[in-house]
Amino acid sequence: MDIIDFLLRQGGAARTGQLTKAGFGRAALDRAVAGGQVVRASHGVYSLPAGSSLRDALTHGGLLTCASAAPIYNLWVLTESCALHLCRSHPVATSRIVEHGRPKHPRHRWLPVAGLADVLLHSLRCLPELESLVMVQSAVGRRDIELEFLYARLQGRRNGRARAVLDLVIPRADSVLEVLANTHFRRAGLRLRRHVFIPGVGEVDFLIEECLVVETDGSTHFEPQAVKRDQRRNNRSVLGGYLVLRYYYADVVYSPDEMVAEVLAVLELRRNGKFDAS
């Protein structure tokens, strides 16, 4: 294994001690730096030329956590964090760094990253509601962590907001859009069922008030074959007596009020007989 392969396995950066233990001595490091394969990011830290949050964590002497650790654990996110979220034993006021104190659970086995439990708990106390919700939903949905475990560590009045986010987690969400749409629909007082099987159609994302099918479509639904499949599903849903609405990422994430307003408007039209054959 050469030094580049080793650094790739370490997420792009490593301390001198790690490199020495792996068999890369001072001469090898100096040659790699001179050849432009590796950069000396800071005292005792070497990395690949392309910057990374892992390199920043080592440089600042901390562990990535909260939103900054989401990519390491393949957690859903709504936006990329501009700040660097770190756990540090001895925090120092630094611009662009959000401090989360010392970790309370086992850290990542080899990367400078807090453990999943700390990452999620920090997100629940730090991030806006929906941003932390999608991170927790993805981890709980994969059974990487138990919801009850998080509840147990968020007792007391000061954690009320975090527990309220946990209350929004659903047993199954196949995409970030589903968990967000579910939250918006529930808050609008809509009666709904998720992942309902309709004969001739298949499983639909939401069945609202037992008459309106709502599908939330990600980027894969723009592929030509997917578009045709979805249109045929729409047709079969209508033939089965259902109304159908479809929403995409921009609708669910950036215009949820408009989405909910349209759903409510369609339901009102139905109650007023606008879709009756007579």
Score class of each variant (00 low, 15 high):
6 F>V: 01
10 Q>V: 00
11 G>N: 10
16 T>R: 15
19 L>P: 05
24 F>S: 06
25 G>T: 01
27 A>W: 07
27 A>I: 10
28 A>L: 08
30 D>P: 00
31 R>F: 00
33 V>M: 04
33 V>F: 04
35 G>W: 04
39 V>Q: 12
41 A>Q: 01
44 G>T: 04
45 V>S: 09
49 P>G: 07
49 P>A: 05
54 L>F: 02
60 H>A: 05
62 G>A: 06
76 W>E: 04
76 W>C: 04
77 V>M: 12
78 L>I: 14
90 H>A: 11
92 V>G: 12
95 S>T: 13
97 I>A: 08
98 V>P: 09
98 V>T: 13
104 K>P: 01
108 H>D: 12
111 L>F: 02
112 P>S: 06
113 V>W: 02
114 A>D: 09
114 A>F: 08
116 L>Q: 11
118 D>C: 06
123 S>H: 02
127 L>N: 08
131 E>S: 11
136 V>S: 03
142 R>E: 08
143 R>V: 00
145 I>H: 04
147 L>S: 05
149 F>I: 00
151 Y>T: 00
151 Y>A: 00
153 R>H: 15
155 Q>R: 15
155 Q>T: 12
157 R>Y: 03
159 N>E: 02
163 R>N: 07
163 R>D: 07
170 I>H: 01
172 R>F: 08
173 A>N: 03
173 A>P: 08
174 D>W: 06
175 S>D: 05
175 S>A: 07
179 V>D: 02
185 F>R: 10
186 R>K: 12
208 I>H: 03
212 L>R: 06
213 V>Y: 02
217 D>R: 06
221 H>G: 03
222 F>W: 07
227 V>I: 15
235 N>F: 09
237 S>C: 15
238 V>I: 15
247 Y>E: 05
255 S>Q: 15
258 E>T: 12
259 M>N: 03
264 L>D: 05
265 A>D: 15
268 E>F: 01
268 E>Y: 01
270 R>F: 01
273 G>Y: 04
276 D>R: 15
